[in-house]
Design a protein around this nucleic acid. Structure first.
Lengths: 359, 359
DNA sequence: GTGAAAGCGCTAACAT
DNA sequence: ATGTTAGCGCTTTCAC
């Protein structure tokens, strides 16, 4: 039923080859012919069948994105932001985006293997990197291109964009210390995640800078969700000497933390300081607005995608790894209302996240 | 490089035909042969090339999901929840999910047309239905299967799952009235969306029930985002006689509204009541927790997907349309703390959203 | 029960 | 500048 390249060829009394070449923009076809072909194709509503082209060219023009499952649902706005960035960039580059939500029962590996073996995608975008990451080993070995948000220590230099979570948290601790805090708690995430180690290191660094002793009682493990933050905070607040400030490893954690503190009758920002990491929209609109370490997730999604496509198309990558510096955004959740606005409180995004070579 | 069906055939001294049939489970191949084939395929790591199979069978085993762009970013948790449901169900049914974020420049139609013409997907899942919806006309005309979350009035009975937003909001108004409110504002969404009309009708119904006159000054249009709710609320609160209660057409709107009210020094739940619609996770964790009309978005995603796949595979659809009744969840944002908990405040999800035929 | 052959729609190597 | 031919990897008649 749908119109094929043969229909167009027949219609114009040309061979399919010529039509194909005209449409592909080869220079060995007469300009007049090309015009006729383009016009006819247009009029007849011809669009190449993806499967056929794919089979022939051995390229899918599709990139894969496998989301980690977070319990039965995933509603981390972080991921939607990221996906929006990736999605915009893929369609800008005429690629399609295949999304897999690792289903509850299925092990993640199966998903990747299936996609690789059936040659369903040209490459992968990886998120939620682990210190030791199976995916990197597997994909490198299979020769399948990939680019990641965040690094792993599995392979030296995989193409990726990272955010210096260590420096970010370190700066956050500095800010809290400057506000007079010394009992600062940290609600982390599973230890195998790269971001856990980085941010925890930053926490450590920050304490060191201020000459504060590390207190294991003030470090708990959450799971990057609101609920995780909520529960960890309940525990913290029941301690004999509770913290005066809490850092959530991400905004969701900090938001859960905020709720727990409020349920305990504390005024966040005055009785206790709470801060997060990510800078999701909700952090800005929460009550009180949340101090956070901002990273440009949408843009990172786009750039990681650019990196991947560059590789897929065999072009040279300006740099394989990019480490961005996140930006502390101080808001009410760490500021006593009676104090003046902190000088760091500049909400504008810096202009120069990315080197021009990636633009 | 990757192993093809020919490799398997050669390895076993069989024809590709036989291998193909053995793997497809046809009954005209000797049981012993089948076992050998399956074993060999397994060992050799054979997985059918998707493109080839697709070209031959004229089926993609892929379903398409085109997200509306909401400004440059989309971070509505509503969509991630929905996508998680769709994604889980597609992979359970061995389908893939192709996601398109309509990019800022590109008109939505182009996206659909490209996907249809290149035969990239077997069908679509539609969201954000409009009263008069081009997509329904187009896809029906092209003979491409689809199923939607929400209805349009374009076609009589397109396969869809809807939520009775009218009844939901009506019940919400009833609740607000029972709490003593009579100046109830409504922050809506663009009028061409089906959900806008439904929920506005419910608002109207609720007022009628209570014998309250409709006051056009209390109805504003938002855009389903926090910012929209925030701004509309600022406007409302500047009015000479501001509302004592505000209904946001979705949770995000209500959350923005909450922030605006708090900035004006109001205690939400006591000085002003605010409620939303959707029941996203953030509504539960906001301060104060938000009264909302809950709809099971994740499950709806799954079921819509089941509907679509049923159609694609030519099986009979038990019913083309399903209308779910949403559930009012009363939380602090509409309750003066001094009052006892409202009887409707039962947070458990009802067990019987879906008829067993869809399970 | 198994194999040979055709063909899905396209692109590219090789003529002319 | 255009056409002929082959083949990507698979499924499906149609023979045997």
């Amino acid at each position: 039923m749908p119109v094929t390249i043969r229909d167009v060829a027949k219609h114009l009394n040309l061979s399919v080859t010529t039509v194909s070449r005209a449409l592909a923009g080869h220079d060995d076809v007469a300009e007049s012919t090309r015009q006729r072909v383009i016009k006819a194709a247009q009029e007849m509503g011809y669009v190449p069948t993806h499967a056929a082209r794919q089979l022939r060219r051995q390229r899918t023009e599709t990139i894969g994105l496998v989301f980690p499952t977070l319990g039965s649902r995933f509603s981390d706005p972080f991921f939607s932001e990221f996906m929006a960035g990736v999605g915009d960039e893929t369609s800008r580059s005429n690629y399609d985006l295949l999304v897999s939500v690792t289903s509850p029962g299925e092990p993640e590996q199966t998903t990747y293997q299936r996609l690789v073996n059936s040659r369903r995608v040209d490459g992968f975008i990886l998120v939620r990197m682990r210190l030791d990451d199976w995916r990197i080993r597997y994909l490198s070995q299979q020769g399948v291109p990939f680019a990641s948000f965040g690094r792993s220590q599995t392979v030296e230099n995989n193409p990726s964009i990272g955010v210096d979570g260590r420096a970010g948290i370190q700066e956050l601790v500095r800010h809290l210390v400057s506000m007079g805090h010394s009992r600062i708690a940290f609600i982390g995430a599973p230890a195998d995640l790269t971001l856990s180690r980085d941010r925890l290191n930053g926490y450590q660094d920050g304490l060191d800078d201020a000459g504060i002793d590390f207190d294991p009682n003030l470090v708990l493990q959450g799971n990057l969700t609101r609920t995780g933050g909520y529960e960890a905070t309940k525990t913290l607040l029941e301690r004999k000497s509770p913290p005066s400030a809490i850092i959530g490893i991400n905004d969701l954690t900090a938001l859960g933390s905020t709720r727990a503190a409020q349920e305990s009758g504390l005024i966040v920002g005055r009785d206790i300081a709470i801060a997060g990491f990510d800078g999701i929209e909700a952090s800005e609109h929460s009550h009180p607005p949340l101090t956070t370490v901002y990273q440009p997730v949408y843009d990172i999604g786009r750039k990681v995608c650019v990196m991947l496509i560059t590789q897929i198309e065999g072009r040279e990558l300006p740099q394989t790894h990019l480490l961005l510096k996140p930006k502390l955004i101080v808001r009410q959740s760490t500021m006593d209302r009676d104090l003046p606005v902190h000088p760091q409180n500049d909400n504008s995004e810096p202009e120069t996240y990315f080197p021009s070579s990636l633009e």
